[in-house]
């Protein structure tokens, strides 16, 4: 091996080491806050003040979780530095599940049948309607949020699940576009054979096309569910009643109502973890699919 070759090999290794160091740094910054949520959520507020830099929970306790789930008595929570006001995230969690699940199921279903009409059926005006739909991709949320609030208010749907869900559950230009492209790429042989055998269009749609489209349908469902679960602005506009508010709102209210001088950080982090946990679970199950779909959305 010549000297230059060795040097080049060594230089490359140094570069590689630097690259790994950088990557580990990025990973650390990315993941550390998640650990810090857990560590703080298992701490006692007074112990936190005494040893704020402790890498392990300070004064280990399940108290913060009991507090935010409404299981702790007022005395218990005050003793650990909570405000004493009960939070009860439980029913906000249920609200979030209802909001995210219904919104996602509806929008994906409606997008799928619309995509089928655009990909497989022949009808006048098809291309015109499709390009009209695509213009919606250009319109940012800011333009429609306020008027949609006024509309939902006029319909008398403020503080209802219908009012929260309806505006976002009927039409998604992105979903329709995405699914139509996928369907156009599928071979139509099986569908045509079924049609020749006398199967109705709807049977073909639900019996053949939909199963073959299940991959992107699942992907869009996961991404849609994440988006809806994390949604904050729209529910903030149309709900003021705790009976329908999702978890994100409850968490923000908890954060803002926490006393400025001495916030209940442990309780806040426990609430944060409760809000993030379903997404982390989703990630455990579908991580690879999520990563691939995000990459795909960019390349397309």
């Amino acid at each position: 091996m010549t000297a230059t070759a060795t040097r080049r090999r060594r230089g490359w290794t140094v570069g590689k080491a630097a690259a790994w160091t950088y990557l580990l740094g990025v990973l650390f910054v990315t993941i550390f806050p998640f650990y810090w949520i857990l560590r703080t959520a298992l701490s006692d507020n007074y112990a936190l003040m005494a040893e704020p830099a402790s890498l392990l929970p300070a004064g280990f306790t399940w108290g913060p979780f009991r507090r935010v789930l409404g299981l702790a008595t007022t005395e218990e929570s005050i003793a650990e530095g909570g405000s004493g006001a009960s939070v009860e995230l439980g029913h906000f969690l249920v609200n979030s599940v209802i909001y995210a699940t219904l919104s996602t199921a509806l929008i994906v279903f409606f997008s799928t049948i619309a995509a089928y009409a655009f990909a497989r059926l022949h009808w006048r005006g098809r291309d015109l309607v499709f390009s009209l739909f695509l213009t919606a991709l250009m319109v940012p949320g800011i333009l429609t949020l306020l008027p949609n609030f006024v509309l939902v208010k006029e319909l008398g749907l403020l503080n209802t699940f219908a009012g929260m869900i309806l505006p976002g559950s009927l039409f998604s230009a992105f979903n329709i576009f995405f699914l139509r492209q996928f369907m156009l790429g599928l071979s139509t042989e099986i569908e045509e054979a079924a049609l020749l055998d006398g199967a109705g269009r709807l049977r073909v749609l639900f019996g053949i096309t939909l199963p073959m489209t299940s991959g992107p349908v699942i992907t869009l469902s996961i991404l849609g569910f994440i988006g809806m679960w994390n949604d904050y602005f729209w529910p903030l506009l149309v709900t003021s009643d705790e009976s329908v508010q999702p978890l994100t709102l409850a968490l923000a209210v908890f954060k803002q109502s926490s006393p400025q001088a001495q916030p209940d950080w442990a309780g806040l982090m426990a609430a944060t973890l409760v809000a993030a946990l379903p997404m982390l679970a989703l990630f455990m199950v579908f991580g690879k699919r999520i990563v691939n779909s995000i990459g795909f959305s960019g390349v397309k």
């Binding site: 949520i37 994440i226 904050y232 968490l251 806040l268 944060t272 993030a276 982390l280």
Partner: peptide
């Protein structure tokens, strides 16, 4: 991409 999966409210609170 973990931070992308959680809501901005959660990120802001942490």
């Amino acid at each position: 991409i973990l931070p992308f999966l959680i809501s901005a409210v959660v990120a802001a609170t942490v």
